[in-house]
Design a protein around this nucleic acid. Sequence first.
DNA 1: CCATACCGACCGACTGGTCGGTTGGTTCAT
DNA 2: ATGAACCAACCGACCAGTCGGTCGGTATGG
Lengths: 215, 215
Amino acid sequence: MGTTPRTPNEERTRKRRERILDAAFHVFSRAGYRDAAVDDIAREADTSKGGIYFHFPTKESIFVELLDSTADRLISRVERAVEAETEPVARASAAIEAVLGIFSGHRSMARLLLIDGLGSGAMFRVETLRLHDRFSGLIASYLDGAVSEGAIPPLETRIAGAIWFGAIHELVVRWLVADHPAPLEEAFPTLRVLLLRSVGVPAERIASIAGAGTR
Amino acid sequence: MGTTPRTPNEERTRKRRERILDAAFHVFSRAGYRDAAVDDIAREADTSKGGIYFHFPTKESIFVELLDSTADRLISRVERAVEAETEPVARASAAIEAVLGIFSGHRSMARLLLIDGLGSGAMFRVETLRLHDRFSGLIASYLDGAVSEGAIPPLETRIAGAIWFGAIHELVVRWLVADHPAPLEEAFPTLRVLLLRSVGVPAERIASIAGAGTR
DNA sequence: CCATACCGACCGACTGGTCGGTTGGTTCAT
DNA sequence: ATGAACCAACCGACCAGTCGGTCGGTATGG
């Protein structure tokens, strides 16, 4: 699509942008949006503030682009993991596991996505909530599938999606802020059981999926 | 206890502090911590910046004191609501309802407690997480009670507490940020069913409590 | 009853520093 | 040589915290 480097110059520009975004990612996830100075990003990207403002109109635009592309990547990875399963409850379970696994392997990504978004200003709150919506919408769609296949009783899947997301969010945030790394996957079995039970998956079914999912 | 006003001067000082805290509460919950200038608080409290710095050492100290006292009040209100019930599952249900009800009636309190805390800086993240801990610890203790009375099967109540808190948190944050007020209590029935199911409360018991709780 | 001294509470101008964004000039590939 | 890419220096706004000074009330003592 738009990724074809017509001239070497365009390629160079693309590389530079990428480098700035990478640096911004690191600085933001280390210091948070407010405390990250554009000069810091410039230093980390081996460029200058002016150089950055040639490629991006505002500091905010860097952050938004970073949030969006990161969320895109994350969601597509979850979707890919879920495609491996066919049965709706197993899909939901796979989604939970995928999210925890990805975050577990990318602490700073998690930090950026889940904590810094709410960082400051109405602007960001809206942006971050859009992100929450994408996730919980994804979950809700799996739950809708499970309902229509009769795997679980009918329920307000929008609310359930939000609840699932909130539960996962809280566990990840705790893991992020805790000093002791305390492996995130450790909480997965309990989380899976609670979430599946919450939407009315029968106990036997949970047990059977548990066998496939945990090891 | 310490509330005896020895001299009229002490009383006056106490009043002044209180007035500053009230103003800070309003300004913080309107603008967020970072965007709230101490001058703004001074204006709202009908005093001056110097006046504020006579009573408080730093801007941060105002915020922390505000967070703590607000959380204290909130938690004690929840505990009082829960004391009315004796049966452990009903207690948990009452706790959920109480939290939603209180937040519903105090939007700005909720905003301050749940959103602005994560606002900025590691300092605050720690402070806010302490608050999350208090809540989810409270929930965990109710769940422990339910487990020991045999009302629900054994489970990792710490994790379950975090999950419950995360679920509630997410719903409240959505309600806070949404433009349309969309009554918070509306989500309560779904939330209660999902949370109670998640910890293994039998369906009949949930139904019986539902009758007592919703109207 | 008044005058002097004193003090806690309070004020607002100022300081020091930070940081987003701009600008005018320079480098470099083509 | 020409324009895209880049840079260092700079600007202006903002803001937490400080400081010298004011003021209303209270205590003292004559």
